[in-house]
């Protein structure tokens, strides 16, 4: 396949960036999207140009490092995957592909397509944990039976990989899907219920302070989320917050 790539290039956080066109040929449909960018970068290096910086690590869809807004969608046109799992067979010969960084005030660009997502970590510092010491002196793991249904839903919420696609895709750059996934995981488990009220208040306050937008229930985040985190979690967070506020 031969493709035209329109890629956001930006030297560093301070300088202005712009879209730059690149041509790439002999792309195999079996390549992953990132492997296609590897090929482009090798060509750029051999030509003496600066390669395109992009985040990636595990390349199996679990670390959440890869980002990329491809043809107007977070992680590209396929569903239930991260960019590293996107394959070139999703595109056609002669296509023009727009590649942009995840955009949000809370995710400033570091270079080219690399953004700073430490805002997510900061929200977690505010309450994304159960306050239990790691001494191992807890009760036996089977001491509290947890209904399978709750455990499964907690797991579903916990599968969030913190990639930021929800923020990138939301027209308001809202982080509610991310925050609600963590709030839900713990709110559904007896271990987390103890400090559920504190947690939701602290995490939401931190989220607001970091400059994420508000949720207007468009549902785009749920569609683009590589792990299929459900909007139910946001509703649960809304409930938890309301309960905590009225306490």
């Amino acid at each position: 396949m031969n493709l035209t790539l329109k890629i956001w290039r930006q030297k560093n956080a301070k300088e202005k960036g712009q879209m730059v066109d690149y041509k790439i040929s002999n792309v195999s449909p079996d390549m992953s999207f990132l492997e296609m960018l590897d090929v482009l970068n090798n060509e750029l290096i051999e030509k003496g140009d600066d390669p395109v910086a992009f985040d990636h690590d595990c390349r199996e869809g679990i670390c959440g490092m890869c980002s990329l807004f491809i043809n107007g969608e977070a992680h590209g046109p396929d569903r239930g995957i991260t960019t590293c799992q996107l394959h070139m067979r999703m595109f056609k010969d002669g296509d023009t592909i727009y590649i942009e960084p995840f955009r949000a005030k809370a995710f400033p660009v570091i270079k080219d397509l690399v953004v700073d997502r430490t805002a997510f970590d900061k929200i977690q510092h505010a309450g994304g944990f159960v306050s239990v010491n790691t001494s191992g002196n807890t009760q036996d793991a089977n001491a509290i039976p947890i209904p399978k249904h709750d455990a499964d839903r907690a797991f579903d919420a916990a599968t969030c990989i913190g990639c930021g696609a929800c923020v990138a895709t939301c027209k308001n750059s809202s982080a509610m899907l991310f925050v609600s996934a963590k709030v839900s995981q713990f709110a559904l488990l007896p271990q987390g219920k103890v400090e559920a009220a504190e947690r939701v208040l602290n995490m939401v306050n931190e989220m607001d302070a970091l400059g994420f937008g508000n949720c207007t229930n468009t549902g785009a985040c749920e569609v683009e989320c590589p792990k299929g985190i459900s909007l139910e979690n946001i509703a649960r967070m809304n409930r938890e917050y309301l309960k905590a506020s009225l306490k």
């Binding site: 009760q139 793991a141 509290i144 039976p145 947890i146 209904p147 399978k148 455990a151």
Partner: peptide, 24 residues
């Protein structure tokens, strides 16, 4: 210490798979 790990992780809220009876 392997046993402690499981206790510890459950206390931290790690959602291990469970059976219908609610046990791991």
């Amino acid at each position: 210490v392997s046993e402690n790990i499981i206790d510890q992780c459950v206390a931290q809220g790690v959602p291990f798979a469970r059976e219908y009876g609610g046990l791991l």
